[in-house]
């Protein structure tokens, strides 16, 4: 423990958090694909299929929630549905209603849904305030799931920005570094004046994290 954290160590720490998330999303993807390939899917059969594995994965306290969100019209009994568990008690979400109107929020416009739909790839959205699921300041990882060439939804998991700060700031401080998202915005920084969500104004050397749209910037 005498060794100080280097920027490379910070990259490793980031990968140790997000790597297992990616593995889990791949697992959910194959579960969901198998279920849809076997015939018509209902809200109940989807939840039943995913619940044990997802709750097991969500024993990781560094996650605020996760699950699978359906594409409109793929379930036989509901147009929109979030097979999603979140919060300390891992409460089941199911529907997300808009405040005031009480209507279901059409989450298909949210970047965490739309981006993987457009790119077909693993997506990391945030930091942003999520008012559909958690009502928290989060980073959301999502992965599209395809069955017969059609997207049936996205598998995903949320991490609180606060969790990332607690987890990564000590190391970043020692390394004098900043964790940066794919849009060049700070997530957690050794610099106390560099607020989460602000763009890095000066050009810096960046070390990319493997398989993730994240980098560690040196000061």
């Amino acid at each position: 423990m005498t060794k100080t954290m280097t920027p490379i160590d910070c990259v490793t720490q980031v990968e140790q958090h997000f790597g297992p998330i990616v593995t889990e999303l791949e697992r959910v993807r194959s579960e969901v694909a198998a279920l849809f390939e076997a015939g018509p899917v209902t809200t109940a059969s989807l939840r039943e299929r995913l619940e044990p594995g997802s709750l097991e994965f969500l024993r990781n306290p560094n996650l605020i929630g996760g699950g699978f969100v359906v594409a409109p019209g793929v379930l036989t009994d509901r147009r929109l549905y979030l097979v999603w568990w979140q919060g300390e008690e891992r409460d089941f979400l199911g529907d997300a209603d808009a405040p005031g109107t009480g209507e279901a929020i059409d989450y298909t416009r949210q970047p965490w849904y739309r981006t993987p739909e457009r790119t077909g790839e693993l997506t990391l959205v945030g930091p942003y305030v999520d008012f559909v699921c958690t009502d928290e300041y989060v980073m959301t990882t999502t992965m599209p799931v395809y069955v017969g060439g059609r997207m049936v939804g996205v598998a995903g998991a949320d991490t609180l920005v606060e969790t990332l700060e607690t987890m990564l700031l000590p190391g970043l401080r020692e390394a004098g570094a900043t964790l940066v998202n794919g849009h060049g915005k700070a997530i957690v920084s050794a610099d106390p004046q560099l607020a989460t969500g602000s763009p890095l104004t000066t050009a810096r050397d960046m070390i990319p994290c493997r398989g993730l749209p994240l980098s560690v910037a040196l000061s």
Binding site: P99, G100, V129, F131, D135, Y137
Partner: peptide, 28 residues
């Protein structure tokens, strides 16, 4: 109505403050 509500909620979320956004959710 839902588009109007969602627009203002989205603007609230752009403050990057979860507390502010929850306050707007309550106001809405």
């Amino acid at each position: 109505r839902s588009a109007d509500s969602e627009l203002y909620l989205s603007v609230a979320a752009l403050t990057q403050s979860a507390r502010m956004t929850r306050e707007v959710v309550r106001q809405e």
